[in-house]
Amino acid sequence: MKPYEWMVKYTPQTEWIEGRGILMWLAEVFGGIGAGLYLVALYFNSVWGMVLGWLIVIALKGGFHLAYLGKPMRFWRMLLKPQTSWMARGFIFMLLFIVFGAVQLAYSWWLPGTTGEAVFMVLAGIMALLVAMYTGFVMNYVNGIQLWNSALLPLLFVLTGVLDGLALVIAASVFGGNIDVLAAEAISRTLLITTAALIAIYLWSATYIGSAGRQSVIRLIHGNLAPIMWVGVILCGIILPVVISWFTHIAGATSAPLLIIAIISEMIGAFALKYAILKAGTYGPLIPVSAH
């Protein structure tokens, strides 16, 4: 972009989605998946799920975040300003989740059923919830990008994180995990429909925030991002899993190939949703003139 073209038109944000910004997208996706899996594993008391969720947050979310930083060796400085910055708060949530999660997993492994295990389950669970949620607040703070400037974003990210966690837990059951698949499917079905409704409300409300919000929604619904939105988010992320889930419900039994298709398509949906939201983030024109 030439200097004189800067901000005359609607300008999509590129920093967190293009080039190395892809790492930021991956960090956000894996943060949701890891924290969601940990929460779901807590509910189903699945230790392997907790371990996997914990590892995803450390290795993938943490790893991609660090790789994105311009000065990764200074990462500890991100602890210093939690009073105003959601990025700093999120970093603290993640560190606390790693510490509490490690203690809880140690208890679950060596001293299961103790009070200590229960206490650290609660603490790590709260931190997992905050890890899944805070990226929504990080984005929601940015009032220049009206699509992101919505209070629904943190809620949407938590819901999708839990959904992804459920998908991974169901996947484990296919390969012999000790999980009540029908119960997980029932929760997943309800959450999928809730998420679909929330996405619709989120996009609808974004059009009322301002012209840049409307522009972002137009790009998502019938602009250059429509294939990602309709195929990735709606078809793969919502419709296919719901249809397969209903089929499982009606048949009263699970089908391993169908479950695998549902899980893969739900994962595609998880990646597509955050990609679409990050990519559609648009600043309004800086000056009140048309394009040169």
Partner: peptide
């Protein structure tokens, strides 16, 4: 002290 997270860059409404 800058860690290069670029949150400031995103947050500036004036780009």
């Amino acid at each position: 002290e800058c860690v290069g997270c670029r949150y400031c860059l995103i947050a500036c409404p004036y780009q």
